[in-house]
Design a protein around this nucleic acid. Structure first.
Length: 464
RNA sequence: GUCCCCAUCGUCUAGAGGCCUAGGACACCUCCCUUUCACGGAGGCGACCGGGGUUCGAAUCCCCGUGGGGACGCCA
């Protein structure tokens, strides 16, 4: 049987880091087994679903390079199918109408909680042989409930958590269609997983409790039960649960924050999954290695430091032209247009080795295209009155040489010798004058890239 | 409250009864490289939640605690 996995987000917000990992694992599992990966948008919550959120999910997946073989399917467009299944369940007695009002149910829940019981529907409208049902109230629109088995238990062998058994006495008759007739989550999932032939359901472990209900419905529909793999949640950097208010950032936020998708992907892959000691691996390698056996059942805490480390790695690795176009966008976002003169590719070749963030990288090289302003502190510390004569001499020497890093280096050395100084005594003021900061790669290389004219202009402006 | 799940360095993890004096990675510390800051290289610090079993032998299996988390919607 060919593997078919799916990612089924609800479009009520952006694609966050936990959802992205779920998608990644489902995607990788399908790739690994030569199967199909399906994207299904679970938009049956009309109140909260938005087209913007759908787009955000699509964008997030595209950015990470998670392509799907089928879909996106939208549940709201599959109403006819659900209605049909609902009707047949009503007919064969696996579902029934319930006329309880929301207030009635609320009261029931409350009293059960008070008694220390697990709140659940008491089955007052559940048809039973020889049981008299209440009078149908005229003013209430019925919901449809699934007639869950009341004895026995549901058992499945979870691919990450192992065997899980839940007694049917823990379950109640859940609502599968609202009063307005729209089907609810648990029902749509079941119908879709069945009809789409999903073989492995890989999802967050907040769904563990839904699984027995879904299995019961699947059985009522005569479906083959898929395998389930429940992934533990991802905690924030501080060990706290991720929430909209607390660190659950959109994957696109990582793009905005200067991360390469390769780094985020690699990081996410290692969060809860491992392949021996392997830490760095690309998409292809991951797909070849991925399996459900090496997923950790416990929750994982997000660690930005490690993401930074991976980002640094991929900034070094990425194709220089791709890096240049990314950095160009970031420069432009800061109203800086990289000109042809100092070649961006060459600048990046020099700077990528030391960067771990694209925004920082763009910021660090901005001085090539826009005149930097050094802090008074750096100026005062490095451009001292004593060094001015040496700088003046250097400036003169630099006017008549071949503009290469080697030649520049020779001239600096000559001045260092002439004035009996240490190399940094000359290099540091140059750094401050040319880059506006006290940190940069080798100053001779910086000068070579900056160009003779611009270099001399900047030096002179500090000597005048 | 009820049900379910989880538990190895600060963090991510390796670990399928002897390969474990518990390995790797991030972070941190030291040193080296050096033209500043980084990068890179070499070292270092640092963990099996507790208690009982089972076994010749347990990080690994079982039980009980403890701690954490999740679920209990006409949300998904």
């Amino acid at each position: 049987m060919t593997v078919r996995t799916r990612f089924a987000p609800s479009p009520t917000g952006f694609l966050h880091i936990g959802g992205a990992r779920t998608a990644l694992f489902s995607w990788a599992y399908a790739k690994k087994h030569g199967g199909k990966f399906i994207l299904r948008i679970e938009d049956t919550d009309v109140e909260r679903s938005t087209p913007a959120a759908v787009q955000a999910i699509l964008d997030g997946m595209a950015w990470l390079g998670l392509d799907y073989d089928e879909g996106p399917f939208y549940q709201m467009q599959r109403m006819d199918t659900y209605k049909k299944v609902l009707q047949s369940m009503l007919e064969n007695g696996t579902a029934y109408h319930c006329y309880c009002s929301k207030e009635e149910l609320e009261a029931l829940r409350e009293s059960q909680m008070q008694q220390g019981l697990k709140p659940r529907y008491d089955g007052r409208w559940r048809p039973e042989a020889g049981k008299a049902l209440p009078q149908v109230p005229p003013d209430i629109q019925a919901v449809i409930r699934f007639k869950n088995p009341q004895t026995g238990s549901v058992v499945w062998d979870d691919l990450v958590k192992g065997r899980i058994e839940i007694s049917n006495t823990e379950l109640d008759d859940l609502i599968i269609a609202r009063a307005d007739g729209t089907p609810t989550y648990n029902f749509c999932v079941v119908v879709d997983d069945f009809e789409m032939g999903i073989t492995q359901v890989i999802r967050g472990d907040d769904h563990v409790n839904n699984t027995p209900r879904q299995i019961n419905m699947l059985m009522a529909l005569g479906a083959t039960i898929p395998q389930y793999a429940h992934l533990s949640m991802i905690l924030g950097d501080d060990g706290q649960k991720l929430s909209k208010r607390h660190g659950a950032v959109s994957v696109m936020q990582y793009h905005a924050d200067g991360y390469l998708p390769e780094a985020v992907l690699n990081y996410l892959a290692r969060l809860g999954w491992s392949h021996g000691d392997a830490e760095i691996f690309n998409r292809q390698q991951f797909c070849a290695w991925f399996d459900l056996d090496h997923i950790t059942p416990s929750a994982a805490q997000f660690n930005s430091e490690k993401l930074n480390w991976l980002n640094a790695h991929y900034i070094k690795e990425i194709d220089i032209n791709l890096l240049a176009s990314d950095i160009t966008e970031r420069l432009q976002a800061n109203k800086i247009a990289p000109s042809a003169a100092p070649c961006l590719n060459n600048i990046l070749a020099l700077y990528r080795e030391r960067a771990n963030n694209l925004n920082q990288l763009a910021k660090d090289i901005a001085y090539f295209y826009v005149l930097p302003t050094a802090s008074a502190e750096d100026v005062g510390k490095h451009i001292t009155p004593e060094i001015i004569p040496a700088m003046q001499t250097l400036s003169e020497k630099l006017t008549s040489i071949d503009w290469t890093a080697e030649a520049i280096h020779r001239e600096i050395n000559a001045v260092v010798t002439q004035y009996a100084l240490k190399f940094p005594k000359v290099a540091m003021p140059l750094r401050v004058m040319l880059t506006g900061t006290a940190q940069s790669p080798s100053i001779d290389q910086v000068m070579a890239l900056l160009g003779q004219k611009e270099t001399l202009t900047r030096i002179q402006s500090h000597l005048a």
